[in-house]
Design a protein around this nucleic acid. Structure first.
Lengths: 224, 224
DNA sequence: AGTCAAAATATAATCGATTTTTTACGGCAT
DNA sequence: ATGCCGTAAAAAATCGATTATATTTTGACT
């Protein structure tokens, strides 16, 4: 799989980083799995150095676990951790959304409408998952973009990535999906109406429902 | 400077990481400075691979900036960013403190008292800065430790590191320092009294004052 | 059979050298 | 003088091979 040829100003290391991040998010690696470095080396046809650098970055970011002298592992999926991630998302994205509503300008309103529209179009093509994921992430980023805090945005991004490891693994839930899709539009409406309180409440509910979908990644309740 | 010999289970990469992190926090590198990799290589007597891996991790963590094909740079100090960091510290540490007060058990109370006591002793030995920094960090970590969210703790740690880049560079402010030292004790008292609201308010004030001290890292107001 | 230790194997970490890209410099035309 | 192009030097990124550590296997002994 000679996937990393003819790049533009990018470094091998950064290309592998992006690729691996995407694959980790999409559950292409078994949770808890040990990373076989030389296998990846073959698979992407790169040297050890850029590969290891990418793995180091992913570990610092939290998408891998690094143990001295024992290489890298994919973090296990853990109910408590998912709950933690969801709870933090509610706190931080709620905070960011309120601030965005206070500070966002007319240009933001336009971009928000555009992002929501693109996402809505994608909602109707369930076959193009990658495209939908892309637009979905972009919509949520747009929503909180003008919050004014670079660090808050950074943390939110990181939490989204963590959350997506679970959500993308969960089975489809069409009824909830429809509600979630509707909420995207409602979030825009509340943002444009500058109703911070209601927007925050809706965001809370949106993340809570997503969390319940993501719980599906643990398989159908072995406790029932 | 053959500083990285005879290690115990640690990897060269992780040793350099710790060393560089510490030096970055202590302002041993000029803000905005370009990292001369081969100079560091000589200085710590290590190969390029572990050094670059450490730099990659530090960049992912936010203590360095990485630009494709242009190596690594120390982030500039920026008033707006410091404000952002302080604001986020107020939000996140406030949140974590409230939760700790709700959830912390008797063992936590003991450790908190111990940590505060150790810190107080160190307050009186202004010559042992490193020791004080160590105990200060530990005190603040203890304060929020039982908040129940690993991710919240992670973000707080990261923000502390960012904040310290500024604070440790700022000139001493003995009067404010005395107030801040006193507040550590008061925080413990409020935590033990389980007065979440007052504790949060005090933490807010504590961080705000620290922020004002840290502003000193920009030199004496060129705008006056 | 089960257990421990030593040897063998596999994997992680590191090094030294090479390749690629950027940056600095100097001539040349405008 | 100023700006552009090509070359030289420097630095970043990468590779291939080596060393160190962990894991597995083997085989003697209980």
């Amino acid at each position: 799989m000679r996937a990393l040829e003819g790049r533009g100003g990018r470094t091998r290391s950064s290309l592998i980083y992006d690729t691996l991040r995407e694959e980790l998010l999409n559950g292409r690696f078994q949770a808890g799995e040990k990373i076989a470095i030389s296998a990846l080396k073959e698979r992407y046809d790169v040297g050890l150095s850029p590969l290891r650098e990418a793995l180091n970055r992913l570990a610092a970011y939290g998408l891998l676990i690094q143990e001295n002298q024992k290489g890298f592992r994919v973090p296990r999926l853990d109910r408590d951790e998912l709950e933690d991630i969801a709870e933090m998302r509610r706190e931080l994205e709620g905070m960011a959304l309120v601030r965005s509503i206070e500070r966002g300008d007319a240009e933001w309103e336009s971009e928000l409408l555009a992002a929501a529209h693109r996402l809505k179009r994608a909602d109707e093509c369930p076959e193009q998952v990658d495209e939908w994921e892309h637009l979905h992430g972009r919509f949520h980023r747009t929503l909180v973009a003008p919050c004014g805090s670079a660090w808050l945005l950074r943390f939110i991004e990181q939490l989204h990535d963590q959350f997506d490891r679970y959500r993308r693994l969960a089975p489809e839930a069409p009824e909830v999906r429809r509600v979630l899709d509707t909420q995207h539009g409602e979030l825009v409406a509340l943002a444009l109406a500058r109703d911070a309180r209601a927007a925050r409440a809706l965001m809370d509910d949106h993340i809570q429902r997503s969390y319940e979908v993501a719980l599906g990644s643990f398989g159908e309740r072995p406790d029932a």
